[in-house]
Design a protein around this nucleic acid. Structure first.
Lengths: 133, 133
DNA sequence: TTATCTGCAAACATTTTGCAGCGAG
DNA sequence: CTCGCTGCAAAATGTTTGCAGATAA
């Protein structure tokens, strides 16, 4: 009896390219952004294939998927190494990376209080920076 | 000087129908569901108009908007008038409104430490709710 | 060899927009 | 009478699918 419910994906040039890019990727990226990055890096991969590989990798739990507020699918490697947020200037676009246990703890506690598990969150802070004020 | 930044919307039959339906609506509903409900209730309202009215009402804070896991926009009358965040189930889309001074204070403090003013922020918490775990 | 993967084009679903006519104020 | 609102159709957007040919195993 050869129980082979998961036929192991082929190691194609395209899949390798997507996989490698995602491993070096910290932030969430949409399929289209990933496709663009691949083309700019010289790899010739069709958008369809990017979608299919991302979805396949998400199905195996290799990638994490969310919806952006704009409704696009966004992918990120599941093994989140360092999670952080952004402080963005509305005027000049200057961005500061923010980390801190306060929000992480708060978000997790709130979620658990409501019976939610596998908690993640997205936070962005906007303001006017000193140079633009 | 008549400072009139918000020209007050007209009382049209269509807008009244959408508004009334939403007031008697507890759960989140997509634009298309709302449109269907209106047609079934006998009101003749175009889908475009439903979209435009829902968006207008959401802009004024009258309605609350989220994305379903399938990527559709969902609307509901806003229960809390104040600023709040969402705890969203990745699986079924169930949503809980979250408020709390912790994040508000933290975001403001962090921003000010970096010299930012006029601070605002956006936060969404994702997880798997008890029913879907 | 051969079943899977790829990539184009075309289909799809949701939401937005152009524009002529309607109607609230 | 005016100008915003409506609604149709058509465009835009993001994602999926059909299918013929390429290719990993």
């Amino acid at each position: 009896m050869t129980t082979d419910s998961t036929p192991a994906p082929r190691r194609t040039r395209q899949r390798a390219a997507v996989s490698e890019l995602m491993q070096n990727q910290e932030e969430f990226r949409t399929a289209q952004q990933i496709h663009d990055q691949l083309r700019q890096a010289g790899a010739s991969v069709g958008l369809t294939t990017v979608y299919r590989n991302l979805q396949a990798m998400a199905d195996t739990g290799e990638l994490d998927v969310i919806r952006t507020p704009e409704g696009e699918l966004s992918f990120r490697q599941c093994t989140t190494v360092q999670h952080h947020h952004h402080l963005v200037c509305r005027s000049c676009g200057r961005t500061v990376e923010i980390t801190g246990p306060t929000v992480e703890k708060w978000a997790n506690r709130i979620a658990e209080e409501h019976g939610f598990s596998e908690v993640s969150h997205e936070l962005e802070i906007f303001g006017t920076c000193a140079a633009c004020a």
